[in-house]
Write a protein that binds this DNA or RNA. Structure first.
Length: 889
RNA sequence: GCCCGAGUGGCGAAAUGGCAGACGCGACGGACUCAAAAUCCGUUGCCUGAAAGGGUGUGUGGGUUCGACUCCCACCUCGGGCACCA
């Protein structure tokens, strides 16, 4: 169709939108419209700050993928942009920027297959994404865009790592302190070393003792080792058969020496401070469950291999413990196992090692296990009870061993039933329970259909010095048992967390090198601040070194090990104990790199002060943007928007680092993100042909509710937008077909921000028509002349305007952009009726409508504002305020 | 499996204890046009009825309430996370 000639010259369509958008994007850049003033430092403009409140808005920064952006990415970015623009119009000094989380596996994989250096690939991906984002018209301060791979950035990632490494958590205050203070306490005798006195310790022993207290420490941790690929694998990369997803090589679960972050020392603070955050309740619940604090007791059972310590949340049921179960990985298994059980135990351990952890925790799976042949003594009854191993007991939780009370725990009950182990009831369930299960209270508990986990009257729970019998209150029964355990030196009340310490090293190339060298005792030593950053050495081959696929014992050889000239180093370092600075030869660099989480744990702080070479962030600048706003306020980013997929890991790791920085006095905020909002995902339809192959969604047509590709019928499904489903829609296509403003409006209109929704290109035109109608109400499509008059506005229209202002203001504040847009459409529809009747638009409505639209479609609004003859910047013009007198009908 | 969400017209949704379906898409009808596109106007949950009207309806089954899309319980389906994808 060639229709261009007959269209009105000044119709608002993709062509006109493109002109307008390019014009304003250029103008914003040259006029530096969105640069946010700092109170101090190189970006300081104190006169611009006076009398304004600040607002720090943050998006979860993207990974610069080779595919660029698809229309799913900008959902959150547009929302924060609309909110930030709205807040600017209500007087806030808004900081909004976007950087790149640019270390990570895809660039490394790309480098392995193509030989192109990850930096090159990463930089071209960033350039492409910057171009795509610029066309969206985001009001970002470009000076503050940082990438985690910039040396000027990761210099400070390394510096923060050293802060963590050179700290310990003082158990008396629960706060991090410099490690030098711990050394001083040991040296002065103020703190007991728990063994050899400090003065008699060798240098190596002292370093080891101190290392054992550091917040970043080396420890053996279980990993999925795939020698055939030469790498450690994520659980998701391991198949159900315990082989690698790629290449189908064997995978071994084994311990390996890894950098580990002592996040568990912060469990209680991470848990308690959730109360003080403005986060969705569901995310708080997920974090609480992840931390998984449970109160109970540790109890020691004696055995021929020594004491076996268990953690239980139900010490009150100790009298019903009729057997014990150890995790197959438990260190005492070897010494416990009797000769005749060795084969069975060995076979079972091998099988457990090949089972995914999620499956091991499954409640519905049949319980499996093996008897070790050994027994242990129940401390309250004195009875010898059998010791088993079973994969439903995990080494990573509690002590890796449990006392099994089949009458009071469903899993233990199932296990006892499977292996005919004894069941002793320690609580008499209420009659209603028996009635519900259609059994009699006189029936033996081994005939019960399942365990009883509620509160009942204690029975069979008595020895010479402890009696629970007759009690009905669980709390009393627990505390009495705990007191008895402590008095008899066989246990004590204890708290356990599901949270585990954070595995922090990767055997990869494309990550931050650790600022660590090893000395002659093989002890880690900080690289001095003056020598940061430790830059990534150049490599030609990025591939991990593959080994014999069955070589379970050799350690992985990370890519950095290839650069022996880099690994071996002479350096002036501070002695970890004395602090004395002296040159050392024969030092060896750490050859692991940090995980991708590292940069994302603190990037928001660098936005504040991106060029600071003396500190990761200036203290005054941090206090201005992130400091607590009232007493008891945690401080932190004012609004953080991102996907719910980061609910636990990223959001817990960054909270931990931030708290360490707070304890050490480097930041004034206790939490990184005060308010959190999770946006939904954009999903998309995908289509498969009769052979089950996905076909390009863009070429599928609909007829009578059925879908066709090249004349053949295809089946529709629904999934996350991505390359594999061939259902990607790029923002570039939308810019070209409709313009950025229409695209922005469409993304904001399709539903509430926190809901996922399918992408439907067909629907975009609705927002284009809306903008077209707005344009036509103010501008003559044929001549381009303004059709706005200064005549008085009729009362009814004025009332509609003020009701709209009132609603839109509240919707924008509450991030309800979809309903704000609906209200603006209604206002414009009223305006259309008026304009049709009178031939002109009242200026008061035209200006207010333009202003209310400007956060949502800023290019169009700026253009209309200028055509309305306004010479002030609409970006900083005051958002309309409703007159209460005009709200009553 | 465990933890967290979500299910409302043909589709995206609105209403969050008080008239279910605002607004948009699509569809249908009309205006403009030689015609079409674009644009504009109107109708549009479903069943029934010529109409007025009547009936019915927020995943399923129960419950609380004068009143439930909204609160509670159970179930089903879908999405997210499960620690080396980020």
């Amino acid at each position: 169709m060639s229709t261009g000639d007959s269209l009105p010259k000044q119709r608002y369509n993709a062509g006109l939108a493109a002109q307008i958008e390019a014009k304003w994007q250029d103008r914003w850049e040259t006029q530096r419209t969105f640069e946010a003033p700092n109170p101090a430092g190189p970006l300081a403009e104190p006169h611009k700050i006076a009398g304004r409140d600040k607002l720090f808005i943050l998006d979860m920064f993207p990974y610069p993928s080779g595919a660029g952006l698809h229309v799913g990415h900008p959902l959150g970015y547009i929302a924060t942009d609309v909110y930030g623009r709205f807040k600017r119009m209500t007087g806030f000094n808004v900081l909004h920027a976007l950087g790149y989380d640019s270390f990570g596996l895809p660039a490394e994989q790309h480098a392995i297959t193509t030989g192109v250096h990850p930096r090159e690939n990463t930089e071209s991906n960033i350039a492409n994404m910057r171009r795509q984002l610029r066309r969206l018209g985001l009001a970002h301060d470009a000076r503050r865009s940082v990438s985690t791979t910039d040396e000027a950035f990761y210099r400070w990632t390394q510096w923060i790592f050293l802060q963590v490494f050179n700290s310990w958590c003082d158990e008396r205050t629960g706060k991090a302190r410099p490690i030098a203070e711990l050394i001083a306490e040991f040296a002065s005798g103020k703190r007991d070393t728990g063994g050899t006195p400090w003065a008699s310790m060798s240098s190596s022993e002292r370093k080891q003792l101190v290392n054992d207290h550091r917040l970043a420490y080396l420890a053996d941790a279980p990993v999925n080792w795939c020698p055939g690929l030469g790498t450690i694998l994520a659980n998701e990369e391991v198949t159900a058969e315990g082989r690698s997803d790629i290449g189908n090589y064997p995978v071994f679960k084994r311990n390996m020496r890894q950098w580990t972050m002592r996040i568990t020392a912060y469990s209680d603070r991470l848990l308690d401070d959730l109360e003080r955050l403005d986060w969705p309740e569901s995310i708080k619940i997920m974090q609480r469950n992840w931390i998984g604090r449970s109160e109970g007791a540790r109890v020691r059972f004696s055995s021929r291999a020594g004491d076996i310590e268990v953690f239980t949340t139900r010490p009150d049921t100790l009298f019903g413990a009729t057997f014990m179960v150890l995790s197959p990985e438990h260190p005492l298994v070897d010494s416990l196992t009797t000769t005749d059980q060795q084969r069975a135990v060995h076979a079972y351990r091998a099988q457990a090692a090949a089972t995914a952890e999620a499956d091991r925790q499954s409640d519905t799976r049949n319980k499996t296990g093996v008897f070790t042949g050994a027994t242990a003594t129940n401390p309250v009854t004195g009875t010898e009870i059998p010791v088993w191993i079973a994969d439903y007991v995990l080494m990573g939780y509690g002590t890796g061993a449990i006392m099994a009370v089949p009458s009071g725990d469903e899993r233990d009950f199932a296990f006892a039933r499977t292996y005919s182990l004894p069941i002793v009831a320690t609580q008499m369930p209420p009659d209603s329970w028996f009635a519900a299960h259609k059994i009699a209270p006189t029936d033996d508990c081994s005939t019960w259909p399942n365990a009883f986990v509620g509160e009942g009257t204690y029975v069979n729970s008595r020895n010479d010095s402890l009696t629970l019998d007759g009690l009905t209150d669980m709390a009393t029964a627990k505390s009495r048992t705990n007191e008895w355990l402590a008095a008899n030196n066989v246990g004590q009340a204890a708290i356990t967390y599901k949270l585990r310490d954070w595995l922090f090293s990767r055997q990869r190339y494309w990550g931050e090198p650790f600022p660590i060298v090893y000395d002659e005792d093989d002890m880690p030593v900080s690289v001095p601040d003056a020598l940061l950053p430790v830059t990534l050495p150049e490599l030609v081959d990025f591939k991990p070194q593959a080994l014999d696929p069955n070589d379970e014992v050799t350690d992985p050889i990370p890519p950095l090990a290839r650069r022996n000239d880099w690994v071996q180093v002479e350096m002036q370092v501070h002695d970890p104990i004395t602090g004395e600075l002296r040159p050392r030869t024969n030092m060896r660099r750490e050859i692991n790199v940090m995980p991708q989480w590292a940069g994302s744990c603190w990037y928001e702080l660098r936005y504040l002060d991106p060029t600071n070479a003396a500190a990761f962030v200036d203290k005054e600048v941090e206090r201005y943007w992130m400091g607590p706003q009232t007493k008891g306020h945690t401080g932190g980013v004012d609004l953080y928007v991102g996907g719910v997929e980061h609910a636990v890991l990223h959001l817990l790791y960054s909270r931990f680092w931030h708290k360490v920085m707070f304890d050490l006095g480097h930041v004034s905020s206790e939490e990184p993100f005060h308010r959190l909002f999770n946006q939904g995902y954009i999903q998309a339809y995908a289509y498969r042909d009769a052979r089950g192959q996905t076909v390009p969604a863009s070429d599928v047509t609909e007829r009578d509710g059925a879908y066709f590709y090249e004349g053949e019928k295809v089946a529709r499904e629904y999934g996350k937008m991505g390359k594999s489903l061939k259902n990607i829609v790029t923002p570039d296509e939308m810019y070209d077909e409709y313009g950025a403003d229409t695209f922005r409006l469409y993304e904001m209109s399709t539903g509430p921000l926190d809901a996922s929704r399918p992408w439907n290109t067909r629907d975009v035109v609705g927002m284009q028509r809306f903008l077209q109608r707005v344009w036509r109400n103010l501008v003559d499509e044929d001549t381009g002349a303004l059709t706005v008059s200064n005549d008085a506005c009729p009362d009814a229209l004025l009332r509609t305007l003020h009701v709209t202002i009132d609603g839109v203001r509240r919707d924008m504040d509450g991030l309800r952009f979809n309903t704000a847009i609906a209200k603006l459409i209604e206002l414009n529809n009223s305006l259309t009726k008026h304009a049709e009747a009178t031939g002109s638009t009242p200026r008061v409505v035209a200006e207010a409508l333009t202003q209310m639209l400007s956060p949502l479609c800023p290019h169009l609004a700026n253009e209309l504002w200028e055509r309305l003859g306004r010479t002030d910047e609409i970006t900083y013009s005051p958002f309309p305020v409703a007159d209460p007198a005009l709200l009553v009908t």
